[in-house]
Computed example of a mutant assay.
Amino acid sequence: MKTPTLSDVARAAGVSYATADRVVNARGGVAQKSVEKVQKAVAALGYVRNVAAANLSTQRVYRFAFVIPTESNSFFRHIHALLAQRDLAGRDLRQTIDIVGVEAFEAAALEGALKNLAGAGYDGVAVVGIESPGVAAQLAALQGQGAAVFSFISDLNASERMGYVGIDNTMAGRTAARMVGMAHNGGAGAVQPIVGSLSLRDHQERLAGFRAVLEADFPQIALRAEIIGRDRNDIVEDRLEQALRAAPDISAVYNIGGGSSGIARLFARRPTRPFCVVHDLMPHTRTALKDGLVDVVIDQRPEDEIDRAIELMRAAANRLPLASCLPITLAIYVRDNLPPEASQSFTDIRSLTE
């Protein structure tokens, strides 16, 4: 049995080839009655649209935007550099990636950046989410214009995006708590959590997961009020030093966001230090592990997050079924299982300082 063609669809629907083509490729300008005829013919014949041929015939170039915090810390410097690499590599795949930097933790800045994307004809937008009514309204406007919106690294409400690309942040927090509990070996202690900002869902979820495991399985370990470090090394270093001076019984530190270089600097000048869990395997956290200044790094594998986001936006732009939006599997590193260090590249050089 031969594969049905667009000509077969047009014949079965009783419309011209041009009309069938406009309906199948969503080009508009077709009466609703004809649209319904073509859709019925597509279903009856089992016609599958040839995306590659359609794109070739229209010389289509996919336009994607990543709306992410500016390069204010090593993690997002790394993300910016990876996206720039993907943009160059994607030219042969007829796709471009615009990187839109916004001030971290500022809902108004994110709202303004999203508003500026309106009418630009983006096929897909990936955004590090901050929950606010203004952000939600701008995301809805982009989706109304046909852009496929995905939350990236930090999730949004399900109604505001087609899917989420990132790790399960509650699981990450639970994992960190398990590491802390095991390190205490049944003994009592106190943990100092550090967050960038609780305006980000990923930081909220990590802290909630961390708290849940401590309360359920390690009630002898107290959880102190979180330090707000805004992912800045100087703020994290200063406020953690104050906390340790005020409460010498702190036996563990969990850094939920950025600013880990500040922790390493502080611990390097102390004779002893608490057990420490941080996020994201960067050159500075790798060095801190090797030097014994932190104990565990939980990594979200940003290369995989970016590639998954591009794959999903491309599929959504082609109106194809979306691949699974299951969370990215996180990686857990101690000084003994560090992966081989990649040869130094532009990305690594930019990430050496946070």
Rank of each mutant, 00 (worst) to 15 (best):
G186A: 15
V149H: 09
P193N: 00
E205M: 09
R174K: 13
G163N: 00
F210V: 11
N116T: 14
A107M: 15
A172L: 09
L114C: 03
G121D: 03
M162H: 11
E106N: 05
V102A: 09
G209N: 01
H203D: 12
A190N: 06
I194P: 05
A148P: 09
G134Q: 02
R174D: 11
N157F: 13
I130M: 11
L142T: 05
G124D: 00
E111Q: 13
E103M: 14
M171G: 09
D202A: 13
G121H: 07
A158M: 15
E106R: 06
A208C: 12
K115L: 06
F210A: 01
R174F: 05
R211S: 15
A190Q: 03
A104Y: 04
F150T: 06
L117K: 10
G166H: 09
V102L: 01
E205V: 11
A188G: 11
Q204Y: 09
P133T: 04
E131A: 10
G189P: 04
S197D: 00
G181A: 00
V195N: 02
K115T: 08
H203E: 13
Y122M: 12
G129V: 07
G196H: 06
S159D: 13
R178A: 11
A183Y: 02
V180I: 08
T170N: 11
V165I: 04
G196N: 09
A190T: 05
A107T: 13
R201D: 03
G124Y: 09
M179C: 03
A176T: 08
G146E: 08
F105A: 01
V125K: 04
A158H: 12
D155C: 04
E103N: 13
M171T: 14
V191D: 02
G189K: 02
A104D: 06
S132G: 15
S159V: 11
A136W: 06
A107I: 12
A158Q: 13
L117I: 00
E106K: 06
D123P: 09
S151R: 03
L139Y: 03
Y122R: 00
I153P: 02
V128H: 02
Q204H: 10
A190M: 10
V100I: 09
P193H: 06
I194W: 10
G124A: 01
R201Y: 09
I153A: 10
A188M: 14
L110A: 11
M162R: 15
A126S: 13
V191W: 03
L142Q: 07
A141G: 04
L207K: 04
S154K: 01
I130A: 07
S159K: 13
T170I: 15
L142E: 00
R174N: 07
E106F: 07
Q138R: 09
L142D: 06
S159W: 12
I153T: 11
A136K: 00
S199K: 10
M182C: 15
G124K: 05
A148R: 12
D123V: 03
A188F: 14
G144I: 08
E103A: 12
F105L: 10
M179L: 15
A148N: 13
E103T: 02
A118N: 12
L110S: 05
I99E: 06
Q192M: 08
G146T: 03
G196V: 07
G124S: 08
G189L: 02
S154F: 08
L117A: 10
A183Q: 02
E131L: 13
G189S: 04
L207G: 01
E111V: 02
